[in-house]
Structures are given as structure tokens and as C-alpha cells.
């Protein structure tokens, strides 16, 4: 027995921490880590609602699996781009990569 708001509030804390991290960090790898935190918050929500709605088909959990897969692909590409930027610019601070900024 567990109440749904508990799970949702935990997920909200993780998501807000992720939002803060994305907005406040300069280092691109830390920004990617914060994005992972936000994706995890979404997964917690999916699993919580799957349990709450008593879905016998476990669609929520399968959806969470897909989110995990896409997050793995995203972090792979993201880190490749980060390493390429570091090789070309000697920095991965997102505010110094401003070649296209008007």
C-alpha cells in the first residue's frame, strides 16, 4: 500500500532539481546529467501511474523502458558532440560556445 502523491512528489523534486541544473550549470556534461535526472523523474511518474491504474498490460513500464533506451541514445550523441566541441574550442562551457549567437 502506497499513496500516489508520495511517488509524484518525489518525481517532482527530481524534475525541479533537473530544471535548476539545466539552467544554472555552465559545464555541458553537467547539463546532460541534469537532463538524465529529468528523464528519470518522468519514468518514476510512468511507473507510478501504471501501478495506480492497475494496468495488467504494464504499458507504463514498457513506456519507461523506451524512455530509458532513447535516453541512452541521447546521452551517447550528446557526449560525442561535447567531446567534439572540446577538441575544437578547448572548452565545454555552454555560454562560451556562442558562434551562432546573434
Amino acid at each position: 500500500m502506497i499513496r500516489l502523491p508520495y511517488l509524484l512528489f518525489f518525481s517532482a523534486v527530481l524534475f525541479s532539481a533537473g530544471v535548476y541544473g539545466v539552467l544554472a550549470r555552465r559545464n555541458a556534461v553537467l547539463v546532460l546529467m541534469s537532463i538524465e535526472l529529468m528523464l528519470n523523474a518522468v519514468n518514476v511518474n510512468l511507473v507510478a501511474f501504471n501501478a495506480y491504474l492497475r494496468d495488467a498490460a504494464l504499458t507504463g513500464q514498457v513506456f519507461a523502458l523506451f524512455v530509458i533506451t532513447v535516453a541512452a541514445a541521447e546521452v551517447g550523441i550528446g557526449l560525442a558532440i561535447v567531446i567534439l566541441i572540446y577538441r575544437n574550442r578547448e572548452t565545454i562551457n555552454v555560454d562560451e560556445v556562442n558562434l551562432l549567437k546573434w
Binding site: 512528489f9 517532482a12 525541479s16 530544471v19 539552467l23
Partner: peptide
């Protein structure tokens, strides 16, 4: 070197998101 200058604003946005979500939940 790790954080930018808008740390306070970012904390405000994060707390706002948390408060909004907590209220909705």
C-alpha cells in the same frame, strides 16, 4: 567555473516548478 551567473534566477524557476507541481499533485 561550473555555474553561470543566473544561479538565483534558475533556483527561482526550479522552486516555482516544484511549487506548481506540488500544488497540482
Amino acid at each position: 567555473t561550473l555555474d553561470n551567473q543566473q544561479r538565483g534566477l534558475a533556483a527561482l524557476v526550479g522552486m516555482g516548478v516544484l511549487a506548481g507541481l506540488a500544488f497540482l499533485i
